[in-house]
Amino acid sequence: MNILAFDTTTNACSAAVLSEGKILAEKSIKIRIGHAEKLIPMIIEVIENANLTFKEISGIGVTRGPGSFAGVRIGLATARAVALASNKPLLGVVSLKVIAAGLKKDQVENKIIVPVMDARKGQCYVAIYKSNLNTILEPFAMDFGKTAKIIASTRKDTNIIVAGSGSNQLSIELEKYGVIAEVPLGDHLPRASVLARVTCEIVQREGWPKTVVSPLYLRDSGASPPSGIFLKNA
């Protein structure tokens, strides 16, 4: 099985090809903007470096969010179009799960994993996983303080490892509740090679999904209804 995987949900852009359990090619860069320019050339490069063609790809893995709205859409629009144009299956994976899966096995043993992204406006995107990546709490968006409160009230006696762009802020909030969380060094951005492995595991266990992969924004569009005179004549 040859899996093409790519991620553009955060301040990174990466693509990878996994074949029979081995990463054959990976490309990853850190960029704040410009994913729309980098992604396709990167995908072409990893497929070439893996000595494969688009036709030889068995399926695609993509992060479906959360992350920047534009980033989520760049990855998903690309993935859905590649799937359509090559008639190949597509699996969407939660970006936070990819962050969690990127941690080393010995790092997470007997701990719960809390991948957390800074979602701005004082909020974070966060989820909670067991060390085997089974979900304890599905992804949600919430204030850092409230998130800390929830984690502290339910998980006080468990060892917690927090990773991602919001990890420092969340660990500070957790300390206010007397919870000391482990914050491993590094960026802990989602990576396509990790995504490819997660995709492969899920597909081996459950098969490729038949349903459309939808984006996971965790926030509404922020639009507000019109006001003033515009309503009076209606």
Binding site: I40, F54, A77, T78, V82
Partner: peptide, 14 residues
């Protein structure tokens, strides 16, 4: 972005 990425992906794939 949605339309352009979709177009690019279809073009690149084929």
């Amino acid at each position: 972005m949605v339309g352009l990425m979709t177009g690019k992906a279809i073009a690149a794939t084929n």
